[in-house]
Amino acid sequence: MEQLNTFNRLSLNQITTDRLSLPEAVEACVRADIPWIALWRHKLAQTGLIEAKRLIRDSGLQVSSICRGGMFPAATAEERRQRMDDNRRAVEEAAELGADILVLVCGPAPDKDIAAARLMVEEGIAELVPYAESHGITLGIEPLHPMYAAERSVINLLSQANEIAERYRPNQVGVVVDVFHVWWDPALYEQIARAAGRIVGYHVSDWIVPTPDLLMGRGMMGDGVIDLRRIRKAVEAAGYNGPIEVEIFNKAIWELDGDESLALMKHRYLEHA
């Protein structure tokens, strides 16, 4: 498999350096010559949108995505309305910061009816599309591993994400391929090919064996069992040549010094991604 030899596509997903504030993460990217950053909304809230916009502009960084929108299912109509209001704010934030992609973590069921929750996701996306399009934002549906179905998302297969995305134009709704969530799927390469022209994000990490924690157990590239290069080549064959976000939930990595973490990330990116 072809090896990456430059960092021009490398993006720091902010969660990988969760201990850093947005200003600290921006400064660390600049020092490390990492050209892209993916922003999380809780970090934006800490800094403030106006200041965040100034930081990004002055740094010269490009924003690969904003995380997250979604969380559509809710127990009551009022809760669903509030979540749609928050999604519209997320769209506005993405547009202000110059991002093209709002990542959707679609949300769990509020009760035992997972089918009804999936319908709420479809209805929520349909409602959000016109507003996102009016702001120049593409919605990226990120399927999450089935182990997250009860807590974070009822969209668990790339095939589910594709089925929803195919109802819209590619500039309206696409899919995000996160290797941690999809590497195990027997239909992975078939579904990546199906998503040709609709892949709007690609996230890398690794699956550690034994898995230390369902949420906080992602590994740095090369520390696990995922065939990262094969997946990257499949994503590229499907037309995606955009930023590659390193997104890692792992307390041991979070405890590293920011510069040390980014240096390790860069090394592993070239070596394994």
Rank of each mutant, 00 (worst) to 15 (best):
R54S: 13
R152C: 13
L44E: 02
S159W: 09
E236C: 02
I253C: 09
K266T: 11
I155L: 11
P212E: 09
D100R: 11
L188G: 04
P108D: 06
E247L: 10
H145R: 09
K266Y: 10
A32M: 05
R89S: 11
I66G: 00
N241Q: 10
A195D: 11
E127P: 03
I208Y: 10
F7V: 08
G239W: 08
L61W: 03
A117W: 06
G136R: 05
N156I: 03
K266L: 13
I231G: 10
V204Y: 07
L270H: 07
A32V: 00
P186A: 09
G174W: 03
E92H: 12
E245Q: 05
K233L: 15
E92A: 15
L20E: 11
D259G: 10
D178C: 01
C29R: 01
E142I: 05
L119Q: 14
L20A: 14
S153I: 09
V103R: 04
F180I: 12
V200A: 05
A74Q: 11
E190N: 11
E27D: 10
P130A: 03
S153A: 11
S64M: 03
G224M: 11
T17G: 08
L215V: 15
N87W: 00
L215D: 13
I37Y: 02
P170C: 09
P110T: 10
P243N: 07
M265P: 02
A77M: 09
H272K: 15
P186M: 05
K266W: 10
L49R: 07
R229Q: 06
R230G: 12
V129C: 01
D223T: 10
I226L: 04
K251Q: 14
V63R: 01
P143F: 03
R57Y: 08
W254C: 08
R68C: 11
A126F: 00
E133R: 15
Y189A: 03
E123M: 00
W40M: 14
T47Q: 03
L158K: 00
C106W: 01
H145E: 05
L262D: 05
I15S: 11
G224C: 12
L270E: 08
E255P: 02
G258K: 02
G258R: 02
P23C: 06
Q46Y: 06
P35I: 08
W254H: 13
L157T: 15
A77V: 09
M84C: 00
I15H: 12
V209I: 15
L128T: 01
P23T: 05
V103C: 13
G239D: 06
R230F: 04
T138E: 01
D113C: 07
W40G: 13
V200T: 06
T138D: 00
Q82V: 08
T6G: 04
I34P: 04
A126S: 05
Q160V: 01
V179D: 00
V204F: 12
A38G: 15
L22I: 04
